[in-house]
Simulated assay, not measured.
Amino acid sequence: MIDVTSLGSYVFCARAGVLSYKQQGLDSGNVEKPRVPNLSYVPAFTEDELKEEFDRIFPAFLRYSLSCLIGFLLLWVIAAFFSVSLSLLLLLPGSLLAWKATTDGLSLLAVLAELSRHKDATPSQLDSTATGPVEVSWYGLIKDGYISFKPKGRYEDLSLNLCGQPWRILQTTNADRIPVFNYSGSNFVIRDSQIMRLALYSHLCKKEFRGSKSEWGILLDVATKRCFAIPIDDHLRSKAIKELKRFSRVLDEDQNGQPVKTPAGSPCENCLFGKPRPFISGVSDTRFTTGPIGANTHSGHHGQPVHSDCGDKFDWRPHHRYWHENS
């Protein structure tokens, strides 16, 4: 089945779509997963979850902090009245306690910052008359009564050979289902690939939850909680399904040995599939669900051989920014 993530990659670049499809289900070390900076421990981005996380971390932070204070006082006494060498020897375990107290303290500060954002947010309502993306506040949506939950598994439409699992779902009291796409990059803008993904997630939500509506998709910057709400109607869902069928034909053509077109413009510049990595035999292999494939190496910075997923699959050198950087 084609995963919605692979379709999004295809809209970005046909070759990226083929690569994403061939790595579906793999825990590939070559593909970076979206991460939540400083908040990976927060499961649902709600006030209750934030408070639970604070209550979980604070006792350990207090315990480590007090242990550090007492420990460093003892080290000072040992250094002042007994042996400086002994105090230095005992400094290592004390430093480990200090490191743990510091990391827990930073986590607590991150949680407190999010609680402050939540407190300052005002309820945000989605304008049913909107015809384009609308910038909204994540905590404003939560305060307006939207409930955030993480799907327990992937949704499927066997008739389209399509599957996908939204990162989160926002649910309303009248059974609306709003898929959420998490963004963790530095350039937070709306792209066609994200809109197509949200449209297909909306389609899967309507199929999974019979009788429910799914008229919006949310593009969320997980670091700042800045959001764009994307209106989704039947026309947009149909457009995404047409794109899915084109992608399916490309996959068939690739399976039959037909070339996949070289991307136009500059999608390769920051693409993870085209990012060169040092060639290490048996370690850095490009892996697909069917197994590893051979490396197409080039001389990288300082002359070491490098290769990439896209280069290995399509036997070329993607125009990644690596090749324009100084060695």
Rank of each mutant, 00 (worst) to 15 (best):
D192R: 04
V180K: 08
T172H: 09
C227D: 00
L220Q: 07
S184V: 03
K242T: 14
F228G: 02
I169L: 15
A175S: 07
E215I: 11
L198C: 09
W216I: 08
V189C: 14
S184R: 02
H203E: 02
L200S: 14
P179H: 11
K213H: 14
K245V: 10
T224N: 15
S212R: 05
S212G: 12
C205M: 13
N187F: 04
V189Q: 15
F247Y: 08
D233G: 04
L220Y: 00
N182R: 12
E243N: 05
L170T: 06
R210Q: 14
T172V: 09
G185N: 09
I218K: 09
R168A: 04
N182A: 11
G164P: 11
Q165A: 06
T173V: 05
S186V: 08
V222G: 02
I195W: 00
E215H: 10
E215R: 09
K239Q: 13
F228T: 00
S186L: 08
Y183H: 15
E243A: 13
S193Q: 03
L198P: 08
G164K: 04
L251G: 02
N182K: 12
L236C: 02
I241Q: 12
A240K: 02
L219C: 03
I241A: 10
V189G: 13
W167S: 08
P231R: 00
A223N: 14
G211P: 00
I190R: 03
I169W: 06
F228P: 00
A175T: 03
Q171E: 11
K225L: 11
I178Y: 05
G217V: 06
C205R: 03
R237Q: 15
H203Q: 02
I232R: 01
F181S: 05
N174R: 15
K239D: 11
E208I: 07
Y201M: 11
L220D: 03
R249F: 10
Y201Q: 10
S214G: 03
F228Y: 15
D233I: 06
Q194I: 06
C163Q: 11
Q165F: 01
E243V: 08
G211H: 06
K239F: 06
D221F: 01
D176Y: 04
L251W: 08
S212L: 09
G164W: 07
P166S: 07
I190P: 02
L236A: 07
S238K: 15
Q171I: 00
E243Q: 11
L200N: 12
I230S: 00
A223W: 08
A240C: 03
I178G: 13
T224I: 11
L251E: 04
V180D: 03
M196K: 07
S238T: 13
R191W: 00
N182V: 10
I178Q: 08
F188N: 08
I195M: 08
C205N: 14
R197V: 06
K239S: 13
P179F: 13
A229R: 07
K242H: 10
H235E: 12
I195H: 03
L200M: 14
P179D: 09
S212Y: 02
E208N: 12
